[in-house]
Design a protein around this nucleic acid. Structure first.
Lengths: 243, 243
DNA sequence: ATTTTTCTAGGGGTTTGCCTGACCGGACTA
DNA sequence: TAGTCCGGTCAGGCAAACCCCTAGAAAAAT
């Protein structure tokens, strides 16, 4: 039920002027996954401007992203963490299962270490913020290609401090960090105003599962009833997006 | 109440070497305000690709935006609603005070009608979402230039429904003013995170009565279910306290 | 290799949401 | 004065959501 002509997988402008002679290996193939066309365009333009990189495809959601990976076989995937609906971390996990060798660079608008930690634990090769200068994206891509992990300055030091500070990391921060990835995802959707059933449908899960997650969230955040849960979720979502 | 700037704003600047017959006006000058460099680049590239538009400046926060306006005298400003720090709508208000004739197109990642309503009431000439196709941005710019208001498809119909449902709703005020005293009181308590039963106890009323009020509120505000009700109530309460 | 979390989901009882309908009292009007 | 409208107050009943419990498979931690 998707009669979409994919302009998602646009063939990059023929690099006819970079033929065999160049001793350089073929350019790094990059896939962009983000639900904001404007942002995709920005990244694409930036990357295609480099001689040793090229955008091999774009995708606006998890499903199309997985399709695009099998089709275009990228070396690196740049994926937005806040993909509409299911979070980019879910996509990251799926990628790591099906394409373990694909390098994934997580793009985020938050500088919350909450997400960075989860992303790295899920196998991301780097974590970069949208607030950063555009050239940093290129730096990040080159760094992950060389096998290193890219982390934004601020974020890196903060996470180091947390490591030094020991397990107090969880105690010092909000109890939200205690939530598992799935729970955080559900929490976020609640905060966006979605009810139990819509969330179940969006995540392709049973209503019972969502209820279960809600129960665990309430337990971990010490919330007594559904009203408090919704209240906190909305406040949290608000502070996240309008940070 | 739409003092849509008379299109006199056509840069009465230097009467340079305007070519022969083609009395083409000089291109529309556009300022981009967003704290994400990548996104700015995406928009800039898109706009500069058009013959009749050009990006005259970029800014990453409210302060620099105001500076850039005085310096570059744009015809249209595209501003992100979720600017780091002050909320973009603040900037919009400031702009409307100091440069009333400048057309402002609000860029947002939410499809929440709450934000759109606030933006329009604060004087925005349009509201477009980042999820939309890139060409829509150009459409939006042209539409606001012609004096019309641009609204995203989804959002526009939803807001129309709210207006229609919220009887005789004046364009100036929110349909919330249609609520009776008791209803507004209940609405406020919902926004503070209280459930039906606590409200009933607090007001010494039957739970059934509160349910009835909730039903009427939903009707007047054209809200589909309890989740939407709570969502709007909390947002309203927040905007009231942080007024 | 074993224990603990996480994710998934069902059973069953309780509570809430939501629709219909109803009564009263004030206000406006014909 | 009678008629009508509306705001505020509730009940019944059915569906949905909520809540507490149990539980297995998979992943992570030990």
């Amino acid at each position: 039920m998707k009669p979409q002509s994919d302009k998602n997988v646009k063939t990059p402008t023929a690099p006819s002027k970079v033929p065999i002679a160049a001793a350089k290996k073929s350019p790094t193939r990059i896939l962009i996954v983000d639900d904001h066309p404007l942002l995709r365009q920005g990244i694409a333009q930036l990357i295609n401007h480099e001689k040793d990189m090229m955008v091999c495809g774009e995708a606006e959601n998890s499903h199309k992203a997985l399709d695009a990976i099998t089709e275009t076989k990228p070396d690196v995937a740049i994926v937005d963490i806040s993909l509409g609906g299911s979070s980019g971390i879910e996509l990251l996990k799926n990628i790591k299962v099906r394409f373990p060798k694909l390098l994934v660079l997580i793009l985020s608008m938050h500088d919350e270490s909450v997400y960075a930690q989860r992303a790295l634990r899920a196998g991301a090769a780097g974590y970069i913020m949208k607030q950063e200068a555009t050239e940093r994206v290129l730096t990040a891509v080159r760094k992950v290609l060389s096998g290193e992990v890219y982390l934004s300055e601020k974020l890196g030091t903060r996470m180091l401090n947390q490591l030094v500070g020991g397990r107090s990391a969880t105690l010092s921060g909000s109890p939200i960090e205690e939530l598992s990835d799935r729970e955080l995802e559900v929490f976020g959707l609640i905060g966006q105003g979605h009810g139990t059933r819509p969330i179940a449908e969006k995540l392709h899960l049973s209503v019972k599962t969502i209820e279960s997650h809600r129960a665990h969230i309430k337990e971990k955040l010490n919330l007594k009833n559904a009203t408090e849960l919704v209240h906190h979720a909305i406040q949290w979502a608000q502070s996240e997006s309008l940070g």
